[in-house]
């Protein structure tokens, strides 16, 4: 099942490594942890057309944890929004691919994000807009677990439930690590599922958020919530740096770290199972 998606996820993961390795530094940990989600959304679930990136009524993905930009760009390039060669311009002066997502620079990016907490509220605004237009779009958004410490996340959570925005499907990249330590050490957010339920959301807990089959099933499950009168939060238990052992082993240090071209090449072999 989903063998094709698994292969695409490998391609995206490798492209993330290639572009961050080419640059020499980047938010590698939180990019690699969300590859399966991006694969499922862009290659299986979302109603989108790379030939018409601004098409009215399309589904939207808003990456509120904007520092996962490189993972989104790799996904968009694999989906045909732009040439893969452009990935090598990541964070170079004048690039269309800045470290944090920018809707005015990058084809296929639906929101400018990076100041944590704000993208989630923007996604709520987009979901409200879609409801008002009655265009049937599904609005997907991704937040970080560290990002969940922002008060604005919970302001938006309250509003989305209050306005019954059941066209909104959110994901938490629950890799349990942030810059200064583990999320629980820094400023605990557990129990996350109970918090979202208490805020009036449907909650789906995914045991392995880096397993394509589980993520695919969870998104399908989440879509059943459309019409329920409640937005849905899918908590993805992920591994920061997933797919490359030495990056995983860096732990909290993998948030934004140096990656040489040689390390990237070795990592790609590891992902391809050729190491």
């Amino acid at each position: 099942m989903n063998e094709n998606l698994r292969e695409i996820a490998k391609d995206i993961r490798c492209d993330v490594l290639t572009c961050i390795g080419h640059l020499g530094v980047g938010h590698i940990g939180g990019c690699l942890s969300v590859v399966e989600l991006l694969t499922v959304l862009y290659f299986e679930e979302m109603n989108i057309d790379p030939k018409e990136p601004k098409k009215a009524g399309r589904d939207r993905f808003i990456c509120s944890k904007g520092h996962a930009g490189p993972a989104v760009y790799a996904t968009l390039a694999n989906r045909g929004y732009f040439d893969k060669k452009e990935l090598l311009t990541l964070n170079q002066g004048g690039t269309n691919l800045p470290s944090h997502c920018d809707m005015n620079r990058t084809i296929g990016i639906d929101m400018t994000t990076g100041s944590l907490g704000q993208g989630f509220s923007c996604a709520v605004g987009v979901a409200l807009g879609s409801k008002l237009e009655n265009d049937g779009a599904t609005i997907y958004t991704l937040i970080g677990d560290g990002e969940s410490q922002e008060g604005q996340i919970w302001e938006a959570a309250m509003f989305a439930a209050s306005k019954k925005l059941d066209n909104l499907i959110a994901f938490t990249d629950y890799n349990k690590l942030q810059i200064d330590g583990t999320v629980e050490e820094v400023n605990g957010i557990a129990p996350l599922d109970e918090k979202w339920r208490a805020f009036g959301w449907n909650v789906i807990d995914v045991e392995d958020g880096n397993d394509i089959d589980e993520v695919s099933a969870a998104v399908k499950h989440a879509k059943l919530g459309i019409g329920s009168g409640k937005p849905t939060m899918v908590i993805l238990n992920t591994k920061k740096g997933c797919g490359v052992k030495w990056i995983e082993d860096l732990g909290t240090a993998n948030h934004n770290t140096n990656v040489t071209e040689e390390q990237a090449k070795a990592a790609i072999l590891e992902i391809r199972g050729e190491a």
Binding site: G125, G129, Q152, F159
Partner: peptide
């Protein structure tokens, strides 16, 4: 919740 209001407005603007 003014911060949420400001960003929701941005989301609505992005939607036309």
């Amino acid at each position: 919740a003014e911060q949420n209001m400001a960003s929701i407005a941005a989301g609505l603007s992005s939607y036309g």
